[in-house]
Amino acid sequence: MAALAWLEPLWAYSFMQRALLGCVLLSLSAAPVGVFLMLRRMSLTGDAMAHAILPGAAVGFLISGLSLGAMTLGGIVAGLVVAVASGLVARSTVLREDTSLAAFYLLSLALGVLIISTYGSQVDLLHVLFGTVLALDDAALALLLGITLITLLAMRLLYRALVLECLDPDFLRAHSPRWSALAHYGFLVLVVINLVAGFHALGTLMAVAIMVLPAAAARFWVRRIGSLLWLAPALALLCCVAGLLLSYHADWPTSPAIVIALGALWLLSMILGRFGVWRQRSVSAVHLKG
């Protein structure tokens, strides 16, 4: 069948199979995290985090040379420090998360540049650190698998507390300050590990895009948090497949192809989705009987 032939590259080459597996894992893991990220109005965290991990990677490089493992680990540590610090500031001062995160990531980036300049390496660390979806080796796949399992487990445990943290944080804090803190910081930890693992395996563009775009698109189709949490990964996976096939058949670079697929889906959803622009315009404001 013609349709099947079109899909054939996905299983004809082992590097495509690996790419697909990597996409499956990251979709399952990062997209649900991205749903909460969007609802907490922290969608720009991804970009900030890509810069914030620099000093960690730099220290990893200084200790172990061009070892991807050391640099990724260093990146995770730096990312966690920045995320937790900005979460702490947001919870205990007048500043909200967006400002505290911006402040810390800038500090972190500057520190990273300083470290690198002082020790004079001309290798662009972040370029070495960021992978590509077509080059997923066993270590990268194992990392993605680990992160996915951790994330799914954590989401299962934290789900109710996390929803309440977003919905009515004072209520949660009054009932259980421990779960309040756990949800708040636990979520930040999930964001960081998903992002850094994503950077390592797939590069910044894809890692951030898979977190942010599917959630944004799903929002135009369903209204409940539970539905968002399964629709976003499904959409992510769909666009990854589309992007991989585009990269093959149209000879496009892979990460941009996947991200363009995600972006196109988002635009379409915004216009045609059940809660998108077009459908909402034709629904007059319904006054509910009180």
Binding site: A19, T132, H249, A250, D251, P253, T254, P256
Partner: peptide, 14 residues
């Protein structure tokens, strides 16, 4: 050195 590879390009090489 750091431009993005395409799936087609890799497949062609293979």
């Amino acid at each position: 050195a750091d431009s993005e590879p395409t799936a087609r390009g890799i497949a062609r090489l293979v």
